[in-house]
Nucleic acid binder design. Structure first.
Length: 781
DNA sequence: CAGTGAGCGAGCTTCCGCTTGACTT
């Protein structure tokens, strides 16, 4: 038995702390919350708002262990995080473990260092019930919103859907961005650039101070420049500084890892978790940019040693993001003197990013000298401008290249990196080489990807570091949003070039607007969003969370009672729920009448059906049963036409009986197919499914069978899980649920590969990608 | 990259935020 039991939230933290405290202390972890509202039922009294808590099944063991240890200990130290949730965890522990006030202490620390922890032990306090109540208000309100709203959707749209304070607003952002893109009206203008030479023959690139709205005006301008003289009218140089970005928080780490390493949000968190557990980095779910004194000192000495004193600039950052709770430090390496670590490639790359970002934040500003040269055009008001920049002192840029990515649009000025300008002086005349007018188009807004959505949510103060990744998965699992690519579109643009005394016009073509891995709203997402916005505008308001957070703060300060806040909300909200559920409409939410079937006169509608977007032929009130057909890939509820919908009802067709079972031709998500005895054969794109005959179908099925039997190129007696298969893209190795590419050179002799050779390929390729990443986040269905 | 696919009046479903294992697909 130990005299003291310390309880923290995370086991990795427990391990570290135990080392600092010596053998009179035992440190255990609660693994987060140990008690929550009952899982299945509403569990909030609709009059008093009293919550009904339970210890969830997966926490029963932990709680039992903590309880027996607490009973034996002389003093129990509750050391959960110093924020709303952390305070509530301590309170729940206090209640569930049946602790006695005289043997319980509440402590907090902000750094996991020996001195910080010993100091915390010296300064215990009581559990802050006001803060706990703020958490209860938060928890109960989220339950009310989620468990009242979701059933409305089951009734009105489709079963198993969900709504919530965070997820519904996340979906709204994506739906609205898509609408902005649809409604975007492109504007065009002509941008004028020029190439000059100074008297030494060096090239000077410049841009005109204005753009022209039409081709005619641009051309007229070029025309008028034919005989012009160009003179250096003004030269200004000014020093410019660039400051390093602050150390990583969860959100900024997710953004940079997505941008620089191509990680998904979930992947980043997973790799960061590994780094945390192996003691490489500090806690990875944080909204704080604060660095410990230890880290500041260590960074300083690393920078001094590696780069010299002039690179040192110790900075402490302060969080500006909405609703930040700052229970932890920023995400940083535990030991700054470790520039590299052991581990797999993903771990090494993420660590490297974190190390560089942290060290950069402690390095001096980069200092630049920016030069702007104004070039006058004889007899004109417009001027050309040439910009140049030289780096006088690289500062933090030496280790970290800061990317400032715009969340909204790609912008229209493709500023190449500013370079050095050749030497010029006032009054110099420049030779005009050529002047080019280029047709430019305003850019439509860009869609969100995972990381930029997280950034937006954080900006609005919605969601927490521990939930960004799960929110993204939830809205995809509910099929409100899907990740996808948008192919670019070919766009033509014109240039007019004045070279010598000739004006030449040319047409060019370029592909613009290609997007990959973007979040796209589905029909279900759009219908649910519109319905919620119409019926529950307050919940869907982007400021709802921020406003309610202010009230939670007042609860935390002890100014108001938590039940009062919840009551105030509930009395306004609940009638809206009643109203929306009892409003009977003739048509389903989101239903669209496309027209009538010319053959029968029956109405053709589209809506969200039991299994997603569906077209319906006929209505339920006539004797004949209606027919249903799933919309094909690419067809949208909002845009599908009557003709397209009617086309869907031409399938399935029956071709006849074969080997005692019918052959049918159906249409699925992935296009038309032949179905027979539970097996399916895809119909290739160029073939019309309406034209296929019985005989052709039999041949196609036969061919598929042969291919199927040829698919297994080789199996091994050594290991049943290792196989060489023939796929659409040539032979490959399948091993334990994963597939491995075969080098081109081995394609020919795929059948002769030995077990060892296969194993070697598997090992080589599994180094590069961790298969566990995929598994963890596809687990729950 | 490595292969999918119906059905449209039961049943069940659902929130957010704190934290990690144990699944044998």
């Amino acid at each position: 038995m130990k005299e003291n039991l310390v309880i923290v939230e995370s086991p990795a933290k427990a391990k570290t702390i135990e080392k600092f405290l010596g053998d009179k202390y035992k440190v255990l972890s609660s693994y987060g919350h140990i008690r929550d509202l009952k899982k299945k039922s509403f569990s909030v009294d609709e009059k008093t708002f009293e919550p009904q808590y339970e210890v969830p099944a997966d926490k029963v063991k932990v709680v039992a262990q903590l309880k027996s240890q607490a009973e034996e200990a002389h003093t129990v130290w509750l050391a959960s995080d110093e924020d709303r949730e952390g305070e509530a965890i301590s309170w729940h522990l206090y209640e569930v473990l049946g602790l006695k006030p005289e043997k319980t202490r509440r402590i907090v620390f902000h750094e996991i260092t020996k001195s910080a922890i010993l100091d915390a032990i010296e300064h215990p306090r009581q559990i802050d019930l006001n803060l706990v109540n703020a958490q209860q208000a938060r928890r109960v309100l989220d339950r009310i919103v989620g468990f009242k709203l979701s059933p409305v959707l089951w009734r009105k749209v489709k079963p198993s859907l969900s709504a919530g304070r965070v997820q519904s607003v996340a979906v709204r952002l994506i739906v609205e961005r898509e609408r902005e893109i649809q409604n975007f009206r492109q504007e065009e203008n002509y941008r004028i650039t020029a190439v000059f030479r100074n008297d030494e023959g060096s090239e000077v690139k410049a841009e005109l101070s204005r753009r022209f709205p039409t081709e005619e005006e641009a051309k007229a301008f070029l025309e008028s420049c034919k005989e012009s003289r160009f003179t250096v009218q003004d030269i200004t140089t000014k020093p410019v500084k660039r400051t390093p970005p602050p150390p990583f928080t969860t959100s900024t780490l997710q953004q940079e890892a997505a941008h620089k390493l191509g990680f998904t949000v979930a992947q980043t968190m997973m790799v960061a978790q590994h780094l945390y557990e192996s003691g490489r980095i500090t806690y990875m779910r944080t909204d704080s940019v604060n660095l410990s004194k230890l880290c500041l000192a260590a960074s300083k000495s690393v920078i001094t040693e590696q780069m010299g004193k002039e690179y040192v600039k110790t900075r402490q950052y302060h969080t500006s993001s909405k609703g930040a709770q700052e229970a932890h430090e920023a995400i940083r390496p535990t030991y700054m003197d470790q520039q590299q670590i052991e581990g797999n490639q993903q771990e090494r790359r993420l660590y490297d990013l974190i190390w560089k970002r942290t060290i950069a934040s402690q390095i001096a500003d980069a200092e630049m000298e920016r030069t702007q040269v104004v070039i006058s055009i004889e007899g004109k008001e417009e001027t050309f401008q040439a910009d140049g920049e030289i780096i006088k002192f690289d500062g933090f840029l030496r280790v970290y290249n800061d990317t400032h990515n715009d969340n909204y649009s790609e912008g229209d000025n493709d500023n190449e990196n500013l370079s050095t300008l050749p030497v010029m002086k006032l009054g110099d005349s420049l030779d005009r080489e050529q002047i080019i007018a280029t047709q430019r188009f305003s850019q439509r807004p860009i869609r969100y990807n995972e990381a930029s959505l997280v950034r937006k949510l954080e900006e609005l103060g919605i969601g927490r570091p521990s939930t960004y990744a799960t929110t993204i998965t939830t809205i995809q699992q509910r099929e409100y949003v899907e990740k996808g690519d948008k192919p670019g579109q070919e766009r033509n643009y014109r240039t007019i070039t004045l070279a010598g005394n000739e004006i030449a016009e040319e047409s060019h073509s370029t592909v613009v607007g290609q997007e990959r891995g973007k979040l796209l709203p589905t029909d279900t997402g759009i219908v649910v969003n519109d319905f919620l916005k119409e019926n529950f505008p307050e919940i869907m308001d982007y400021n709802f969370t921020a406003d309610i957070e202010k009230k939670f703060d007042e609860i935390a300060e002890g100014k108001i009672a938590w039940e009062g806040i919840v009551k105030e909300f509930y009395e306004d909200f609940e009638p809206q729920v009643e109203k929306s559920i009892n409003t009977h409409t003739e048509h389903k939410v989101g239903e669209r009448l496309l027209g009538n079937d010319p053959a029968t006169g029956a109405p053709v509608t589209v809506k969200i059906g039991r299994f997603g977007p569906v077209a319906q032929l006929g209505s339920t009130d006539i004797k004949q049963k209606p027919r249903f057909a799933q919309l094909a890939a690419g067809q949208k509820l909002e845009t599908i036409t009557l003709a397209e919908a009617l086309e869907l009802f031409r399938l399935p067709r029956k071709l006849g009986m074969y080997e005692g079972e019918p052959i049918t031709i159906g249409a699925g998500k992935y296009g038309p197919y032949i179905a027979h005895k539970g097996s399916y054969v895809s119909i290739p794109k160029g073939t019309d499914p309406m034209e296929i005959t019985f005989e052709q179908a039999v041949i196609m099925m036969h061919r598929k069978h042969v291919e199927e039997s040829e698919r297994h190129l080789k199996t091994f007696s050594e290991d049943a899980e290792m196989e060489v298969l023939n796929g659409r893209y040539g032979p490959y190795i399948a091993y334990k649920g994963n597939n491995y590419r075969l080098p081109k050179a081995l394609h020919e002799k795929a059948k002769e590969l030995s077990y060892e050779e296969c194993m070697q390929i598997v090992n080589e390729q599994s180094d590069k990608t961790t298969n566990t990443t995929k598994r963890r986040y596809t687990r729950s269905k």
